[in-house]
Structures are given as C-alpha cells and as structure tokens.
Design a protein around this nucleic acid. Structure first.
Length: 257
DNA sequence: ATGGCCACCGAGGGTGGA
C-alpha cells in the first residue's frame, strides 16, 4: 500500500518574526513534514504551544541569535538526532528524525561569506563532515530526504545571470554539492521540468524579488529508494510576497511511497 | 556610488546573512 507524503523546507530567518506566516502556511499546505532553518531562537523560547495547536509535533535544535533548525511533523518523529556526530561545532545546523518511515534531515549549511575567508574554510569542512554523516545515514536509512538551506546554487541555471558574487556558486561549493549527489541522492526539484529562473532566495535589497534577482539555494535531496516515488516538486513563492517576509521561499516535494 | 535590507542584541551601532 502506498502513502502520499508532502515534505517541505523553509528558511524562516527568525521563527519569532515569521511565526504568523508559518502558522498560515501550515494551515494552507498541510505538509507531513516541514524542515525549518534559521530559527534564531533558543530551545526554551520555541513556540511549541502554537505549533502543537496547529496540529504539529516539533523537534528543534536552536541557539541564541544565529542558526537553529527544526522539523515539524504530523506524526511524531522517532530516533531524533542533533548535529553532525563526531564534528565538534557550536553552531546548531542539523537535526534528523524518522517520520512515517522516512529519514528526514533538516540542515542549515554555512554561508561562507566570501571565497577564501575563514568562514569559507569552515563551510568546506562542514560540507565534508556532512557528507561523511550522510554516507552513514544512508546505510542505516535507505529512505532518506536531506532538506534545507544549502547555501549553494548547484548549476548555472540556479543563479540569476547577473549574480556577481563568487560565494554560493564557487566551484568547490558546487563540487561538494555533486559529491552529495554522488552518494545516491537526487535533487527532487530537478526530477521534474521546471520554469526557467526558478529561485528560492531573493535579497531584501535592490527590489530583488520584484526583479526575480535570486538564487536557488534551498533544496530537497532524496535517496535512490525514494526518487522513483516522487510525484511533484515546486517553490512556493506566495509567502515571499507577504508583508515582512522571510527572504527565502518554501520548497516542497510530494511523493507516493 | 564597493551600499541599498532585515534581524539580532541591547540601547547605538556592530555583526551576519546570501
């Protein structure tokens, strides 16, 4: 018997500020699992009551001011794991759990700031650690989704032609993305024919959203066991049009597994 | 024009994001 699932990822850029948008989106879209990033919220301040009132369970891994990830789910999450095992890191960027038989990982990849900076070196080291972790996770959980803000636009078509920065599109970052695919993961969005200039992030400045001056840096990668079950994937630009939006839009997949 | 916006902390402007 097959079961339809809707799984999404959304960098909220502050859970506190975006809570009304989040609750509206949950009510409208009813995802089975929603991976969140950039909570900027300590665990003790997590708005659990509001999330539960919306009909969702929540697991979270937060810190003050920066980073912070969570997974919301219709059914309770099992086998919860936080951070990258064996990778010493103060920054709260990873949480994983099994939801309705699917291993779901919510990840907030480092930004990297500028190519060659210390933060860039941290990004590449973090990517290597994540890759080792994913290799292990795939052995334990063949039905897996890696979702989050990757801070990498994997191909030329994933960045607006006028994007002048090296960061988010540099060859070492794109190589790291391809190494993840090489583990047997597939970009759910690219499993389907998509409109040109499909992006998931637009800068707050320069009227970037109105001009569709953006990047596709939020992704859902699915394991080989799940890829044949995909039924759709899209970017939901609606929340980016609201007052005081996150600079990221939710990215969604559906599957029938 | 080498910044423009937004959120954070905390009480003013510095830091970080992408």
């Amino acid at each position: 018997m097959s079961r339809a699932m809707k799984i999404a990822t959304w960098n909220l850029n502050s859970l506190k500020v975006r809570l009304p948008h989040l609750l509206d989106w949950l009510a409208a879209e009813q995802p089975d699992a929603l991976c969140l990033q950039e909570l900027k919220c300590e665990d003790r301040a997590f708005p659990l009551a509001e999330i539960e009132a919306a009909g969702y369970h929540a697991i979270f891994n937060g810190q003050k001011t920066y980073n912070g990830v969570a997974i919301l789910s219709r059914v309770k999450a099992d086998a919860v794991s936080r951070d990258i095992p064996g990778f010493a890191d103060e920054q709260k960027r990873v949480i994983a759990a099994t939801i309705a038989g699917v291993r779901v990982i919510s990840a907030y990849f480092p930004n990297g700031q500028t190519v060659g900076s210390e933060k860039y070196a941290y990004k590449l080291a973090w990517l290597a650690a994540l890759t080792s972790y994913l290799k292990e996770e795939l052995l334990n959980y063949p039905r897996l989704v890696l979702a989050g803000d990757f801070n990498i636009a994997p191909e030329a078509c994933d960045a607006h032609p006028d994007w002048q920065e090296e960061i988010l599109v540099s060859p070492p970052e794109r190589d790291a993305f391809r190494v993840l695919l090489g583990l047997g993961l597939e970009d759910a969005f690219r499993h389907f024919v998509q409109p040109e200039k499909s992006f998931s992030w637009w800068d707050y400045r320069m009227m970037a959203f109105r001009r569709n001056f953006g990047l596709r840096i939020d992704h859902l990668l699915v394991s080989a066991a799940l890829a044949p079950t995909l039924t759709a994937s899209w970017v939901d630009k609606a929340p980016r049009k609201l007052e005081r939006p996150s600079d990221h839009a939710p990215v969604v997949l559906t599957l029938d597994a």
